[in-house]
Design a protein around this nucleic acid. Sequence first.
DNA 1: GACAGCTGGTGGACGCTGTCCACTAAGTTA
DNA 2: TAACTTAGTGGACAGCGTCCACCAGCTGTC
Lengths: 218, 218
Amino acid sequence: MTAPGSPADTPGAERRRRPRGEVRDGLVAAGLELARTGGPDAVVLREATRMVGVVPNAAYRHFADRDELLAEVCLAAMGQLADRMATGVARVRGKHGDPAAARHRLRAIGVAYLAFAREEPGLFATAFSVPQQHGYDTAPGSNGTDRTPLGQLRAALDELVDAGVLDQRRRTGIEYPVWSAVHGMAVLVGQGPLRDLPDAERHRVEEASLAFLNQGLG
Amino acid sequence: MTAPGSPADTPGAERRRRPRGEVRDGLVAAGLELARTGGPDAVVLREATRMVGVVPNAAYRHFADRDELLAEVCLAAMGQLADRMATGVARVRGKHGDPAAARHRLRAIGVAYLAFAREEPGLFATAFSVPQQHGYDTAPGSNGTDRTPLGQLRAALDELVDAGVLDQRRRTGIEYPVWSAVHGMAVLVGQGPLRDLPDAERHRVEEASLAFLNQGLG
DNA sequence: GACAGCTGGTGGACGCTGTCCACTAAGTTA
DNA sequence: TAACTTAGTGGACAGCGTCCACCAGCTGTC
């Protein structure tokens, strides 16, 4: 992001005082890049400051410690996962309530989740490695639509009920088994014991998981 | 494991040359203890050597680097998970082939898995964090019974087929969706976004996952 | 039994990390 | 303009993984 010789990106500006929030945002962006290529452990504070072109201690003006920076990076990574899911769902046509469309949309969620875990293993691992102190927000709820991964899954399951595919009485709390099944597959295949499976085999296994879900939901 | 003042556990032996394999085994044991309380990141080489009462470099006589030690610790942790599952299954009575017993044994596997993840979060996380270079062995297969977690799951599913609960044609590859569902729940609830769920809620969610499985298998 | 060779320990050093403290310059407000 | 806050710098520290040189004790052979 910057040459080691010159203190900042722009060679003209010699030192000190970048625009408001620039350093902070830069650190998060740098951390995200590090996480992308090396997972959460690769988010090293000094390296991030180097990329931004600032001295290590400058980070402490914006974050209490490394974990707080990491937490921010995790949040951003989770956001990218959510985006991926949203675009996947949006690609499925067919109006709300149509049984086939509802099934496809749920499937799209799972496919996007698994694809993200496969193509961005560093970010995926980071998204789920929020340090202890800076816990997850357990969803904002909010008035509008909840764009978190869990929120999107809930919406898809609700539609499955609306479409008459999933029995209303089974709906309560079923997001957790469903989420678990997809998440577990992503973890086992991405970083866990199944990570060395050849591509074809991995694809088969992933499909089996989605099929199991599709079948188990009605 | 030893007082910092004296170099070894036994105060008489002043220094040098412990019995064959003792230091190596001690390092793994120490690493396991560290992993138990703090997860894989807590397995720090220097601390392990301190616990054994040996100088940091001594570790390099037994392991190429820290990752190799960690890999050994991971293996041990996985072994403890397998033990837990085996004893859980063994507690279920009823002879092989009985439908109810087969169902109970599968359930016992899931319950043991989730219990281990909950009660030993450090070891559980460690078991699944084998460093890249020292990959999982993808099961020995072997002639006798396979005591790995996956092997035990397979046995339980086979019994489910024998008992006529699970259709033979659905058997192939179904261990992966099943494993994923349980593993995903363990991860989400233990270290993931659901880790702050109150006990009662977490229990309900875990049960939902097991019920989903039980229902989905026929 | 002396001697060579291997094995497994020691001591010291290096570069990297996260973090703390003191300091200072730029921007903001009175 | 003076006082105050904000956001950067510089230097230091301990702890980490790892490398190199060294050396003590065990082992096997002539």
